[in-house]
Design a protein around this nucleic acid. Structure first.
Lengths: 246, 246
DNA sequence: CGTCACATTGATAATGATCAAGTTGAGTGG
DNA sequence: CCACTCAACTTGATCATTATCAATGTGACG
C-alpha cells in the first residue's frame, strides 16, 4: 500500500522541472497561456528581480528594454506633470504584466509599494517568443483589453464621482481584483498610502481620510487600522459607488 | 500620345475592384493591414451603415454581435450612472474601430455626433478573418494599445488638471488626432456640443464655456463661432495643458 | 419674426483644497 | 521601560474653486 515502494520509473511526486511550475501566479500571469513544456522556453529568457519598498522599476519615457510580470507585492503606475502633480493610473497585483500599453517607451513610471518580486524579460526576446507562441500573444491582448476597460471605468470614477463615491468604488474594485488574484478580498489589506489613494482618485489626502471616516461612520466599512479595511456592507458600498440598483 | 488609345488589356485607369480600395480611410483603418486582394475578403463580410445625428449605434451592455470601423463623421463613447451622470470616454474619428476593449458585451454606449458612415462586421465573422490574417490581428492590437495609452492620459487630465488646463489639453489632443486622421487640425471643427465636452472633461457646461472664454481672452485661441476653434498659440496651450516646458 | 436649443455670462452656494493642529504608532536612544 | 522623534493619518477651520441657479445672448429653422 505504501506508494513509495512502487517502481521509481513511475512518476509519483514529479519534481518541478522549473521554478515557474511551482510559481504562485502560474495560473494567473501571462505564462498561464503556456503548458509546462512551453513555459520552460519562457523561463530560459526570464530573470528574477526583487524590489524594495518605494524602489522605482521604470520611469516614464524610458526606452522599452524590459517588460515584467509581477509575482509578489504591488506596483503603482503613475504619470507626473512638470509641477509635481501626479496621477496614479493603476495598481498592479501579482500576475499582472507591465508593458501592455507601450510601443517603444514606457508610458508610465512604475514603483514598488512594499517589497516586490517579479520576472523580468528582454522586450526583444519576449517579442520573439510571442511570435512563436500565438497563445501567449492572445493572452497578452486579453490583458490589454482588460486594462483598457479598467482605464475607462477609471475615467468615470475620476470625472463624475464625488469623493466618498470614488473611495467606495476604489475599495470594491480593489477587493474584487484582489480576489481574482487569489488574495484576500475582504478584510482588505491596503498596501498603498493615503497619498497614493489620493493620487489615484484625483483627491487630496485629507479628502481621502474624511471619506474613509464617512464610510466608517455610516457602518459601511470597519477600519481596524488605516491599512486594513473590512467591507461590512458591500451592497451599500455598491449603491454609493453607483454600481448597484439600476 | 493619347493614353485612351492604348490596348485595353493594359491597366491604366484600373477600376477599383471594391469600394474599399477608394475608401478615404483605406490607409488609416484596420484594413490598412491588408493589401487590396486581402481587403476583398474583408469586404465580403462587411456591410455599410449610416447614422443620423444623435443616433445610437450600440448601448452599454449590448451583446457584442457587431463591431464597426468608422469611415466618416464622429462617434462618442460614453458610460452612464443610474442617476444620469455621464462620462464620455472618447471620441472616435474616421478610421477608428469600435469594439477594441470588449470581450462579449459592449462596455460603452456609442452614439453618432452628426451624420456618420461606417463599416459593420459580424463579431464572429471578423474574429475568423482576424485568425486568417495575422496582420489584421496585429493592427487591432496596436489600436488597442494606443487606446489604452489615450485612456491613461485621460486619467491624468480628469484627475489632476484644472478646468482651463483640461480644455487646453482637449483642444490640443483633438487637433493632433484630427491631423493624424487627415482632417484639418488647425482651424479645428468641434462637432460635439459643450455638453459633450463637459462630460468628457468631467466639468459642467458653464465651466467649459468660461474656460473657452479664458483661453480666448488670453489670446491662445480664437472662436469665430462656438464650434470652430483656431489654436493661435499652440505652445502657450501646451504650457497650460502641462505638456511642454519640462 | 418667433421659437427653440445651445452657448455665454453673472450671482450665489456647496464642495473640496488648503492651512493648521492634533493623534497615533513605529522606531530610537536615554 | 519610557520619553523622544518622525512620518502617516485624522480632524478642524478657512478659503478658493467650481457647481448650481438664473438671466441673457445668439443663431438656426420654421
Amino acid at each position: 500500500m505504501n506508494q513509495q515502494l512502487q517502481p521509481t520509473t513511475k512518476i509519483e511526486y514529479r519534481k518541478p522541472r522549473s521554478a515557474c511550475e511551482k510559481c504562485s501566479v502560474r495560473s494567473l500571469a501571462i505564462c498561464a497561456a503556456l503548458d509546462d513544456d512551453e513555459v520552460a522556453e519562457l523561463e530560459r529568457i526570464m530573470t528574477s528581480r526583487s524590489l524594495g519598498p518605494e524602489e522605482m522599476l521604470v520611469s516614464e519615457g524610458d526606452p522599452l528594454n524590459r517588460v515584467f510580470s509581477l509575482t509578489s507585492g504591488m506596483l503603482r503606475l503613475s504619470v507626473a506633470l512638470p509641477d509635481g502633480r501626479r496621477q496614479i493610473t493603476g495598481f498592479l497585483l501579482p500576475g499582472d504584466y507591465l508593458g501592455l500599453a507601450d510601443e517603444d517607451t514606457h508610458s508610465s513610471t512604475a514603483e514598488a509599494i512594499g517589497p516586490v518580486e517579479l520576472c523580468s524579460f528582454s522586450a526583444r526576446e519576449i517579442a520573439m517568443l510571442i511570435e512563436r507562441f500565438p497563445k501567449l500573444k492572445d493572452r497578452l491582448h486579453r490583458f490589454t483589453r482588460a486594462a483598457l476597460r479598467q482605464a475607462r471605468d477609471n475615467q468615470m470614477i475620476l470625472g463624475r464621482l464625488a469623493p466618498v463615491e470614488k473611495l467606495a468604488s476604489f475599495l470594491l474594485g480593489l477587493s474584487a481584483r484582489a480576489e481574482e488574484h487569489k488574495l484576500p478580498g475582504n478584510p482588505l489589506l491596503l498596501a498603498m498610502s493615503r497619498t497614493d489613494i489620493a493620487d489615484y482618485l484625483g483627491l487630496t489626502i485629507e479628502t481621502v481620510s474624511r471619506s474613509f471616516t464617512k464610510l466608517r461612520n455610516n457602518g459601511l466599512i470597519r477600519l481596524p487600522d488605516p491599512h486594513l479595511v473590512e467591507l461590512v456592507n458591500k451592497s451599500g458600498l455598491q449603491a454609493i459607488a453607483g454600481q448597484g440598483a439600476y
